[in-house]
């Protein structure tokens, strides 16, 4: 099928430069590890987790880091697209018969592929620190990551297209949105210890539901309302993102 073939073409195009430069790839891959090794121990040593044992901190922290990667990575996909829109390479591809949808999916899949490799790497390195692996939960958690990544990637493509030709809008919105999403989701520190207003803001942030769900899944708990809410939030983000993304791609660039 044409869309599948075009998606493959786009995916191979996008992933090739990364594979050709293993050193650069290593640095990209390495960044979440910094959080794991430089931030993680702070949590593990914190009295909050001390009562439950040090391992519980890792159990809590790893899913949070994964969601954070899932927010920064796909957001950057839009940045790459913006660069290609400002240059002429996107235009060149738009004049070929390649499917527009495939162009978008192929790009997203590249981010997803990197994300999954990072996730496996991160989990692998957390194991000796005391992270306990519930395989079905982790797999379900990764699917949740993919769904969220697709949605955010599509959002960031739409944003990149809307930011032409200067790109200022893209920087403004990503900066304004990304950090509140991360900070108000409790992915790095629990929101429970914060003031009420902060907790309320956290409850409004859809990402915090996904973080909760991811933690449940990684702990091997499946029949919990948080899993349902988190999945719903991820699916909602994906549905809205893909709709907006595809529409702005079709409307012409």
């Amino acid at each position: 099928m044409k869309v599948i073939r075009d998606t493959r073409t786009m995916f191979i195009r996008e992933i090739t430069p990364a594979l050709r430069q293993p050193v650069g790839l290593l640095f990209t891959m390495g960044q979440p590890l910094l959080f794991l090794f430089l931030f993680g121990p702070l949590l593990a040593g914190n009295e909050m987790f001390a009562a439950q044992g040090e391992a519980s901190a890792w159990q809590w922290f790893v899913p949070g880091i994964l969601i954070m990667m899932c927010i920064t990575g796909p957001m950057m996909a839009g940045y790459m697209l913006l660069m290609e829109l400002v240059g002429g390479s996107m235009e060149r591809m738009l004049v070929t018969p390649m499917s527009r949808t495939a162009m978008m999916i192929g790009r997203t899949l590249k981010e997803i592929a990197l994300l999954l490799v990072q996730a496996v790497l991160l989990i692998g390195l957390a194991l000796p620190l005391g992270f306990r692996l519930y395989l079905p939960g982790v797999l379900a958690g990764l699917i949740l990551l993919v769904v969220l990544g697709v949605g955010l990637g599509a959002f960031s493509f739409a944003l990149a297209i809307a930011s032409q030709p200067g790109g200022e809008l893209f920087y403004m919105v990503t900066q304004a949105v990304m950090f509140p999403l991360i900070l108000l989701s409790g992915m790095l520190l629990p929101l429970d210890s914060g003031p009420t207003w902060l907790q309320v803001l956290g409850r409004i942030n859809p990402v915090s539901y996904i973080v909760d769900a991811e933690r449940m899944l990684f702990a091997g708990t499946y029949a919990n309302p948080s899993v349902l809410y988190g999945s719903a939030a991820a699916l909602l983000i994906a549905a809205v993102g893909v709709t907006i993304g595809t529409r702005s791609m079709r409307r012409g660039i």
Partner: peptide, 15 residues
């Protein structure tokens, strides 16, 4: 087009 058709980070033959 008016601008360069090849992506910045890509090799000539790959593109």
């Amino acid at each position: 087009g008016q601008k360069n058709s090849a992506g910045e980070n890509f090799r000539v033959r790959d593109e």
